[in-house]
Amino acid sequence: MNAHIVQTVVAATSYDAGVRAVSALSARMAYVAMCLTLCWGVLTATGWVHRLTGRQALRGGHIVLATFTLATGLTHGLAFLLLDSGGLGFLQVVLPFVDGGLARHALGIVGLELMIAVAITAGLHRVLETSQWVNFHRFSYVGVWLVAMHSWLGAAANGSVSTLWLGGITLLAPAITLTVLRFLPPEHLARIGLVDTPHVEVDNSPAPEEPAPKPGDPLSATVRTEVKDKIAVSVDHQRCHHYGICGSQAPKVFRLLEDGRLRYAKNPEASQTPLVEAAAHACPMRAIKVNRVKD
């Protein structure tokens, strides 16, 4: 009888050890894939791969890495449902702070679910407005850093920081660097050579004189404000790769259609000038040309 109990306990312990090993391995693989996904996504979306190497980056690589990250992350979380001792319930795995859940667990849950939501939205981007999809896609950065904090806090709690320190920092450093560069103002990126200053032509020819207002015309009593610059926009469709970054910068001027074509306003309102110039700065393929005309 006692021998049977001992054998059962040993089997259960070996089973739990195997499940924990799978959970730990999948967590480390998810961490690696997550950092690579972020780096590849920034390099692809901004066109910096082509800028630095002369070769185009494949967006499919970013999708494959993101899918692998989510798959291994889900494996890591769901493995805790299979433990015989010390396991977690389904609600504890999918909802933070259920039954006294730890903060580090909550970081991982929220981060992973946020990345899943971003992935689903990205898959449905043809149904949604382009600007909305791009803006929501940026929340993936938040998800990455939540999961990174979860990983490091978990490693500290399990006493494995020393073994993961070198690899973790090696992967996290370029991810942090690219994230910072991604959100730098265009003029700083142009200064370090990652983007080119967009080509802007200024038409300094004198504007035609306006006829003087007639007596009694309501406009005669109006104080004229300062003259604003109007712009003419053109896009080189041979160079444009339809990344949609221009739509996130100036959504009232640029828009990707459901069939992938780019629609844009050739003569936008003067109030859109700063946004259009920002879109020209951000375009990785330098496909947007801005002509400024004095009105």
Rank of each mutant, 00 (worst) to 15 (best):
Phe183Tyr: 15
Thr44Asp: 12
Pro198Cys: 09
Gly168Val: 05
Pro215Met: 07
Arg104Ala: 03
Glu187Lys: 05
Gly168Ala: 10
Val253Asp: 04
Asp229Gly: 01
Thr179Asn: 14
Asn291Met: 06
Leu83Gly: 05
Ser151Glu: 02
Val94Met: 07
Ser162Gln: 14
Asn267His: 13
Pro96Ile: 03
Ile231His: 01
Pro198Met: 06
Leu36Trp: 05
Pro284Ile: 02
Gly216Thr: 06
Leu146Cys: 12
Ala21Val: 04
His281Glu: 04
His150Gly: 05
Ile109Lys: 06
Ala287Glu: 07
Gly60Cys: 01
Thr273Met: 13
Lys214Pro: 00
His62Gly: 11
Val93Cys: 04
Gln238Val: 13
Val64Glu: 05
Leu275His: 14
Thr13Ile: 00
Leu43Trp: 06
Ala173Ser: 14
Val227Glu: 13
Val19Phe: 09
Gly167Ala: 14
Ala21Thr: 14
Lys252Phe: 03
Ser271Trp: 02
Phe97Ile: 06
Leu70His: 04
Val195Gln: 14
Gly54Val: 12
Asn135Ser: 11
Val19Gly: 08
Val235Glu: 03
Gly159Thr: 06
Pro198Asp: 04
Leu256Pro: 08
Glu210Leu: 13
Leu25Lys: 01
Ser205Asp: 11
Leu78Cys: 05
Thr130Arg: 09
Arg239Pro: 04
Ala103His: 08
Leu124Tyr: 10
Ser85Glu: 11
Gln56Lys: 14
Val134Asp: 01
Ala117Tyr: 04
Pro206Tyr: 11
Thr222Ala: 07
Val223Leu: 10
Tyr31Ser: 08
Gly41Arg: 02
Ala280His: 04
Leu146Gly: 02
Lys266Pro: 00
Leu171Glu: 06
Arg286Thr: 12
Gly54Pro: 12
Val93Gln: 05
Gly193Tyr: 07
Asn135Phe: 08
Asn135Asp: 14
Met1Leu: 08
Ala250Thr: 06
Val64Pro: 02
Ala221Ser: 11
Leu82Glu: 02
Trp40Leu: 03
Val147Glu: 07
Val235Lys: 02
Leu171Thr: 08
Thr8Tyr: 04
His50Asp: 10
Val127Gln: 09
Gly73Val: 03
Leu153Cys: 07
Phe183Cys: 03
Leu256Val: 06
Leu38Cys: 12
Asp99Met: 06
Ala190Ile: 01
Asp217Gly: 02
Gly123Glu: 05
Ile109Arg: 05
Cys240Thr: 02
Asp217Glu: 11
Tyr15Thr: 09
Phe136Thr: 06
Leu43Val: 13
Arg59Ala: 14
Pro206Trp: 10
Tyr264Ala: 03
Ala190Pro: 01
Cys35Val: 11
Leu25Tyr: 07
Lys294Ser: 13
Leu124Gln: 08
Cys283Met: 04
Leu88Gly: 01
Ala30Cys: 15
Leu52Gly: 01
Ala207Leu: 09
Ala71Trp: 02
Phe68Trp: 14
Gly41Gln: 03
His50Glu: 12
Glu201Asp: 09
Ala11Cys: 00
Asp84Lys: 08
Val147Gln: 05
Leu38Thr: 07
Thr67Ala: 15
Gln92Gly: 15
Ala175Val: 03
Leu88Ala: 13
Thr225Ser: 12
Ser131Met: 00
Val293Leu: 12
Ser23Cys: 10
Thr163Glu: 15
Gly60Asp: 02
